[in-house]
Amino acid sequence: MMPTSDDIIEHAADFLRRISPEGRAAARRRRERRQAAFRRIARRLVLASVVILGAALATGIIIGPIGINGLLAVILAMVLAWAAILMWSRSPEPTPERLATSDLAQLPAQTEDWLEKQRPALPAPAQRQLDALALSLEAIGPQLAALDPRQPEAIEARRLIGDELPELVRGYQRVPPSLRRQPMNGGPSPDKQLAEGLGTIGEEIARMNARLADGDLKALATQNRFLEIKYKGDGEMGEG
């Protein structure tokens, strides 16, 4: 089957995304998160194995050889422990419903993971926007982690990232594919509306991050001024 022009455009866009700075940064973050998750699971598996083997060794020293039945029990305990750890360590699949109630500190990363799964269903321009959006989500993550979830800024961020952004993408996906490139009622096409919406949300996340950072900078300047008055001022008064 010969590839269509749309297929060629999509493949070219995907190639450009992978070699773009934003695309490489997004791939690096996903790889680092997978590696960190693997290391956490590996540590838990090793710890469980050490505990079980240590208990078996202590039993053999105190009571006597555990025998073949004891060895089978140790193996069974390790298998059950490993299975429990692997099941417990699995992160639930991100969904818009889960994003709406996600822990604020985890919301940016979980939203990025959900968006990545929606990428194949989005047009090429929107896919490129997702990489820039991922950078904004990564940047605001530490800021949100420091917020009280009851603060107005936290509520606003949750609404924007965990509600309005997923709803924009899902609203686009509900449009039949055959109509997505066509202007609607004299207005822009769904493809263009999606691109404009993603751009607006990305800009708002950047503004929100700047506002939160401005508050931290002002707090740091106030603390620095307090220290200068308290210590340098006292020293100068003492010298006089």
Rank of each mutant, 00 (worst) to 15 (best):
E228Q: 13
P120L: 04
E239S: 08
A84F: 05
G187H: 11
V169S: 04
G235I: 09
F38L: 12
W114Q: 08
R39T: 03
R44F: 00
A126D: 11
A81Y: 02
L220H: 12
I161K: 04
A145I: 07
P142G: 08
R180C: 03
E22W: 08
G197C: 07
L217K: 14
R34T: 05
L45S: 06
P190H: 04
W88Y: 02
T222D: 14
L71S: 07
R17F: 00
P125N: 06
G186D: 04
L72W: 09
A124Q: 02
T111H: 06
A206F: 02
M78G: 10
A157F: 02
E22T: 09
T95M: 03
G186F: 08
Q118E: 11
R159T: 12
A146G: 07
I61F: 07
P94D: 02
A56V: 09
Q35R: 15
R98E: 09
L107Q: 09
L16P: 01
G23T: 07
I85T: 10
E239G: 01
L147W: 09
N209P: 00
D216N: 13
A121S: 14
P176E: 14
Q127H: 01
G23I: 06
R90C: 04
R17L: 14
S91F: 01
P183M: 11
E196V: 11
R34H: 09
L227A: 14
A48E: 08
N69M: 11
M87D: 03
M78V: 13
E22F: 11
R30F: 06
R39K: 10
L80G: 10
Q173T: 05
G162K: 05
R43M: 03
G233R: 14
V79H: 03
R31Q: 13
E204P: 00
D7I: 09
L53T: 06
G202N: 15
A81D: 04
F38T: 13
A221I: 08
I68N: 12
Y172R: 08
N69K: 12
L179I: 00
E112Y: 00
E10Q: 13
R18G: 07
E22P: 00
P177G: 04
I68E: 14
G199Q: 10
S91T: 13
A83K: 07
V79A: 12
W114E: 04
D131V: 07
A145S: 14
D131L: 05
A126M: 10
R128A: 15
I85H: 04
N185R: 14
R170N: 04
A134R: 05
E167R: 15
P94T: 09
H11A: 15
E156L: 10
F15R: 10
